[in-house]
Write a protein that binds this DNA or RNA. Structure first.
Length: 269
DNA sequence: CTGCGTAAC
DNA sequence: GTTACGCAG
């Protein structure tokens, strides 16, 4: 077989793949869209939602969020990352859109333009690549926060990848993430989108038998330190943000797990 | 993977 | 406004 015919074969396979996607998987999207506006929630997607300090919780298919209008961004974004969500699909990045589900009006993406800051995903696009619909849904302005590029593509990206590793290893984790919207913060754009000085992620694994948690608090700057140096207790993030993370848990269990800053149950290898 | 900016239509 | 492409950490 010549090199040329190999390329041709690959091209044909790709075309067939796209055809199959357009004609079969899209049916699934329509079903999801219908279900979106209703109280249809599966699995634990709602069970582990934190409290909202702003009173505005918005549910999307692939994640839920609590929007803070004064800061023009979410105070938290929460979603479950299951093993089967992980895929190697490579969807084209769409443009960001204003989230119309936010009643007070989500930030316009133009606030970020030439601001010097990334439109940093809170629910990463890489965590919602199991369908085109949920992938594109992460490109809503309610799901982003201004992030320094070196931070976003550096230590923050490393943490996101570690979470995918854990999701695979433990068959799923529930993730809550956001910027700490407190204190003096810079703002960008005409809508004055706040630039958090710290970002956090709180994880709970309720799939491996024994419930376990881990929390990370990172200064908004890149770092070469190992990830475990950013581990803190869930309690400390609750104190910083005013958010109650897992009120659905049995109180005794919640108190014990949230007080701990141990990471012995989480593999960093 | 995480993103940006520029050019052309 | 939308699309395509190259580039960087």
């Amino acid at each position: 077989m010549t090199k040329k015919s190999v390329y041709s074969l690959i091209a044909i396979l790709i075309v067939l793949g796209i055809y199959g996607y357009e004609h079969f998987l899209k049916v699934e999207e329509k079903v999801e869209i219908v279900a979106e506006g209703e109280e249809v929630k599966q699995n634990t997607n709602e069970y582990f939602l934190p409290t909202s300090t702003t009173g505005q919780i918005v549910h999307h298919e692939g994640y839920s969020l609590s929007y803070s209008e004064p800061h023009e961004q979410a105070e938290w974004v929460a979603y479950e990352l299951k093993k089967f969500h992980l895929s190697n699909t490579n969807f084209k990045r769409p443009y960001f859109e204003v989230d119309k589900a936010v009643k007070t009006g989500a930030a316009d993406w133009r606030n970020y333009k030439n601001s010097g800051y990334d439109r940093g995903h809170l629910c990463p696009a890489g965590d919602r690549s199991y369908s085109k619909f949920v992938y594109e849904e992460t490109f809503l302005t309610s799901n982003i926060s201004p992030q320094d590029h070196a931070f976003n593509s550096g230590i923050w990206n490393t943490l996101e990848q570690k979470i995918r590793y854990w999701a695979s290893k433990y068959d799923g984790v529930f993730v809550v993430t956001g910027g700490v919207l407190k204190g003096n913060m810079k703002t960008i754009g005409s809508e004055r989108v706040a630039v958090p000085n710290q970002f956090y992620k709180v994880l709970i694994d309720n799939n491996s038998g024994k419930t376990k948690m881990i929390a990370f608090l990172m200064p908004h700057e890149n770092s070469n330190k190992p990830l475990y140096e950013f581990v803190v207790s869930v309690d400390s993030i609750e104190k910083l943000t005013g958010i109650d993370f897992f009120p659905q848990l049995d109180d005794t269990l919640e108190n014990t797990l949230e007080a701990s800053s141990s990471y012995k149950d989480w593999s960093f290898n």
